[in-house]
Computed example of a mutant assay.
Amino acid sequence: MKQGDLVVRKSYGGDVLFRVEDIRSERALLKGTDYRLLADAPIPDLSVVRDPESTKATQQVRVKVNDSLRRMRQQREQQSVQIQSDVRLASQLQNQPYFEMPGKVLHLDGDGNYLRKSMQLYQTMQVPAHGVHAHESQMADLLYGLLPQVKPDIVVITGHDGVLKKQDDLHSLNSYKNSQNFVNAVRVARQYEKNRDGLVVVAGACQSHFEALLQNGSNFASSPGRILIHALDPVYIAIKASFTSIRETIDLSDVIHGTISGIDGVGGIETIGCCRIGLPRPKAVSAAGFIKNIG
């Protein structure tokens, strides 16, 4: 067994697929390939996976991911149709083409592979996004410079987390691997913009301290049930916030149940959307993706 191998844990019935990040003595440091989980395990408990697509863990996740992405695209299509109808009914300029400005995302991720997947999804859904790969402990310091530089409408603070072994006090941040780091980053975001509708904050990873993240200023956070969350769950919420109109609040039930992990994985508070409609359509469309024609 070596660094980079794909493995499952025998003692957990092979429920999650991991990649070996490091080997220390007789234990391996593991990162989930689909879930934002950081774990370690004794090497004898690990089984190397040669064909990940054949594993039950991967197959189950793929079904959930495809369902979530399909729902996301359907909602986006329905939203575009509704926007066109609303703005034309509200305007005397019936034939005037409009344009759309979705909210801009700043995405900080403690995992480079997840960041690449996240940025690909933002691009596919035409959401303007700026991504940064950084260790969870560095995120708070980085945000001091990134927030005024990028000027996002939405910030995603995520990576890896987990409840430490032999920790029974789930109310203490000391019981979590990275929740304190996420809380520190959320506090910096709220120092920059105190209004939760002025900057939408999505924070947390697997088993993160949901209550602490909300109390310190996050709009959406993981994990109410201290469960594993999928790597794309924070991205799904950010996209939903980006395309929800500033005249509407993000539908909590809709956005939570639209994630792969569901209500035990992600929760949040009422939040106004970030998308704006404009008139008339500019002759030159922004290369950064801020403007998307809809008329």
Rank of each mutant, 00 (worst) to 15 (best):
K56W: 03
A57P: 01
T58C: 04
T58Q: 05
T58R: 03
Q60N: 14
V61G: 03
V61D: 11
R62W: 02
V63K: 09
V63N: 04
K64T: 14
K64Q: 13
N66H: 11
D67T: 12
D67Q: 13
D67H: 09
S68L: 03
S68D: 01
S68I: 01
S68V: 11
R70H: 15
R70Q: 13
R71P: 01
R71K: 08
M72Y: 04
R73G: 09
R73V: 05
Q74G: 12
Q74R: 12
Q75K: 10
Q75L: 15
E77C: 07
Q78K: 13
S80W: 10
S80C: 06
I83W: 14
I83R: 13
I83Y: 06
Q84P: 05
D86Q: 11
R88M: 06
S91F: 02
S91P: 03
L93S: 11
L93H: 08
Q96F: 13
Q96G: 06
Y98S: 12
F99C: 08
F99P: 07
F99G: 14
E100L: 15
E100Y: 15
M101L: 10
P102N: 02
P102H: 03
G103E: 02
G103H: 04
L106Y: 01
H107Q: 03
D109M: 00
D111S: 11
N113P: 00
L115S: 11
L115K: 05
L115V: 08
L115D: 01
K117Y: 04
S118G: 10
Q120M: 11
Q120L: 14
Q120W: 04
L121P: 12
Q123G: 11
Q123T: 15
Q123V: 04
Q123R: 10
Q123I: 01
M125S: 04
V127P: 00
A129E: 00
H130V: 15
H130L: 03
V132N: 03
V132W: 02
H133A: 03
A134Y: 00
Q138S: 10
M139Q: 02
